[in-house]
C-alpha cells in the first residue's frame, strides 16, 4: 500500500460520502443521475464478489463493504425515499449502450475465462464509463450544484491517484494489470473536461454552468 493508493481510496470514499450527505441533508437528489448510481452499484457488486472467496485484509474487506453499502443506500435514496425529487426527465442517457458493449468486451478481453474473472473485468470496464449518464445530465441541464461538482472532483481524483499508484507499483513491485490500467486511463480522460471547468470556475467561487 503506497500513499497514492491510500489517498485514492480515501478520495473515492469522500466522493461517495459527499453524495450521500448532499442527498440526505437537502432531502433531494435533484441534479443527480440515478442511472450512474445504479451503474456504480453494479460495478461494486460484480467486482467485490471475491468478498465471498478471498480474504485480503481487514482494510480491504471493510472498504469493500462500505463502498457497496453506501452505493446501495444512494440508489435507495434516489429511487425510493426521495423519488419525488429525482429529475428523471433529464436523466435520459441510454445505459444499454454502455452495459451491452462493456458486457461483450469483458467476455472477449479478460485475464481468464471464468465467471468471477469475467464479472471482475466487466466491473472494471463499466466503472470507466459509469459516470457518463451524470456528465450527460449536466451537459443537458447546462449546470450543476457546487456540491455535485465536489463529488465529481473527488471521484475523478481517485482515478488519477490510482494511475500514479500503478506507475509506482510498476517501478517498485514490477506489478501491472493491463486491463485495469487501460480502463483507468479511459476513465480519467473522461474527467479531464470536467476538471478544467472545476478549476477555472468552481474553485474561483462560481457555479458550474455551461454556455448555452
Amino acid at each position: 500500500m503506497n500513499i497514492f493508493r491510500l489517498t485514492g481510496d480515501l478520495s473515492h470514499l469522500a466522493a461517495i460520502i459527499i453524495l450521500l450527505l448532499k442527498i440526505w441533508k437537502s432531502r433531494s437528489c435533484a441534479g443527480i443521475s440515478g442511472k450512474s448510481q445504479i451503474l456504480f452499484a453494479m460495478v461494486f457488486t460484480t467486482r467485490y464478489l471475491d468478498l465471498l472467496t478471498a480474504y485480503i485484509s481487514l482494510y480491504n474487506t471493510s472498504m469493500k463493504i462500505i463502498y457497496i453499502g453506501c452505493s446501495y443506500a444512494t440508489v435507495y435514496l434516489i429511487y425510493a425515499k426521495f423519488k419525488a425529487t429525482y429529475d428523471g426527465n433529464h436523466d435520459t442517457f441510454r445505459v444499454e449502450f454502455l452495459v451491452v458493449p462493456v458486457g461483450g468486451l469483458s467476455f472477449l478481453v479478460n485475464h481468464d475465462f471464468s465467471p468471477l474473472e469475467i464479472l471482475w473485468t466487466f466491473s472494471i470496464y463499466l466503472e470507466a464509463v459509469a459516470i457518463l449518464p451524470q456528465l450527460f445530465m449536466i451537459s443537458k441541464t447546462g449546470e450543476a450544484e457546487t456540491i455535485t461538482t465536489h463529488y465529481l472532483f473527488f471521484l475523478g481524483l481517485y482515478r488519477a491517484l490510482y494511475l500514479i499508484n500503478w506507475v509506482w507499483r510498476f517501478y517498485f513491485e514490477g506489478f501491472f494489470d493491463m486491463i485495469a490500467i487501460v480502463a483507468g486511463v479511459v476513465q480519467t480522460i473522461l474527467y479531464c473536461d470536467f476538471f478544467y471547468l472545476y478549476v477555472t470556475k468552481v474553485l474561483k467561487g462560481k457555479k458550474l454552468s455551461l454556455p448555452a
Partner: peptide
C-alpha cells in the same frame, strides 16, 4: 500478460 493472483486493490 503479468498480473497478481490476488486482487488487493479496490
Amino acid at each position: 500478460c503479468h498480473r497478481t493472483k490476488v486482487k488487493d486493490e479496490l
